[in-house]
């Protein structure tokens, strides 16, 4: 095949993520996250990443590793702090080397959806009367007070899925779908770490959740040394 989306290793798949890139990371609270890709990125010692993710809770070890390795200078998330004393994000934030943007999760997902869908921005009735609407562009639309939310684009999306076929169609397993399928379309380059790679036709077309058009690179997780 002259053209293939399949990469030999996580290292190869993340090799061109530059300093300063914005990465969109799948998984919720570190569960169903692309751990192999995040580890490979931490090993590379990339600097100054902006990391968009669901949350920084217990279990987000791969993310913590990336943060502790000094790769990340900004986090955009509904919950960037763990609320615990050993939180590496909290520590860096206190030291002034980490910027934190807090965004309600539905709004964050919708902003990425806008980016992936070519929408220039949306008016959402979310967070009115809270600090998340303060100082923002608001307007009444159809009698409803709304906040303008701009698209949020990434350079790379790093996601986890259960299965990919050779053309990049993805299927997930259960809650794996939630945040992984939400971030995948919003980046210039989407990299999927999957448990299984099958031939085209190996996924029932009715069960494809992320069509291959959104997926640029595939890495099989067994080729990923976890650590």
């Amino acid at each position: 095949m002259a053209f293939s989306k399949l990469y030999d290793s996580a290292q190869a798949a993340v090799a061109d993520i530059p300093d300063g890139a914005t990465i969109l990371v799948g998984g919720v609270s570190g569960v169903n996250a692309p751990e192999g890709l995040l580890s490979a990125l931490a090993d590379r010692g990339v600097r100054d990443l902006t990391c968009v993710c669901d949350s920084n809770y217990y279990g987000a070890e791969a993310l913590h590793r990336l943060v502790s390795a000094g790769c990340v200078s900004r986090i955009i998330s509904p919950a960037p702090f763990t609320g615990r004393s050993d939180d590496p994000v909290h520590e860096l934030w206190r030291a002034g080397t980490m910027t934190v943007d807090v965004v309600p999760w539905g709004t964050l997902a919708e902003r990425m959806r806008s980016a992936g869908a070519g929408i220039g921005g949306v008016f959402l009735p979310v967070g009115i009367g809270t600090r998340f609407a303060e100082g923002r562009e608001t307007r009444m639309v159809n009698g409803v007070e709304c906040v303008f939310e701009a698209p949020l684009r990434g350079d790379f999306a790093l996601i986890r899925a259960a299965c990919a076929d050779g053309v990049g169609n993805l299927a997930y397993e259960g809650p794996q779908r939630g945040w992984n399928s939400a971030v995948v379309s919003a980046a210039r380059v989407a990299i999927a770490e999957v448990d299984q790679v099958v031939e085209p036709g190996g996924i029932d077309p009715e069960l494809v959740i992320t069509p291959g058009i959104f997926v640029n690179r595939i890495v099989q997780s067994s080729s990923v040394p976890v650590g």
Partner: peptide
Amino acid sequence: PGMAYFSSVEAFAMIR
């Protein structure tokens, strides 16, 4: 082999 089905909203998200 390799097809994927999706709704009209996704079809045009891909385009736009």
